[in-house]
Amino acid sequence: MQSPQHRQTWDLIPWLVNGTATASDRALAEAHLAACADCRDEYAFQSRVHAGLGVEAAVADEPGPAFGRLLERIEAEQAGQAAPAHAPRQRRLLRALAAAVVVQAIGLATLGAWAVGHRRADDAPAYRTLSTPAAEPAMASLRFVPSPELSVGQLQRLLGDNGLHIVGTNEGGTIYTLAPVASAHTDAGVIARLRAAPGVLLVEPIANPSAR
């Protein structure tokens, strides 16, 4: 029968090999490795894997041109933000539709709460309009960055399917603050679904570690 030390050491071997095991774990494993040929063999095997994977696989291009292209993208976006009077009609339409998403989500939440009769008045979901600056809204649970290709319709479906609504946005309208419509927090499943959805670049929980 295998000892607990054997199983612990076996599990620790990758982290010994890549040098991230804690000092106490290292001490435990070293003591067992000295007495266990199987673990020494596995350590040697994983060391070979580590050595093989550690070899640089490809030559990276010079970063200058790629950085230039990224800067062009950033400057184009900032130019759009700095000159709202010249902003394309499509951008204004997008913002108007985003605001409509907020109104729709709030309306649905209120209607749903009224229909089931379980919600007390002081539990109504807090929200902010897109034009409200300053601190994060009380119910804010997620920071959300869609790709420019994500359409308003796709955004509406994504938020509706996951029980979320928009409670804030940055000046450029590129980063949204989301909150759950009905519950007190956003569970990890919602975060995973959002991250897995096409057209989503970043989803991060706000202030609530249990949501991760």
């Binding site: 696989a57 490809a58 920071r143 991060e204």
Partner: peptide, 29 residues
Amino acid sequence: LSRFLARFTARRDLIEEMVNETLWVVWRT
């Protein structure tokens, strides 16, 4: 990042796209 991503695709255009997408998100957030 380029070398890490090159372990999963040989297409340099995709690698640059992913590196720039990553660092664009860093810039914005």
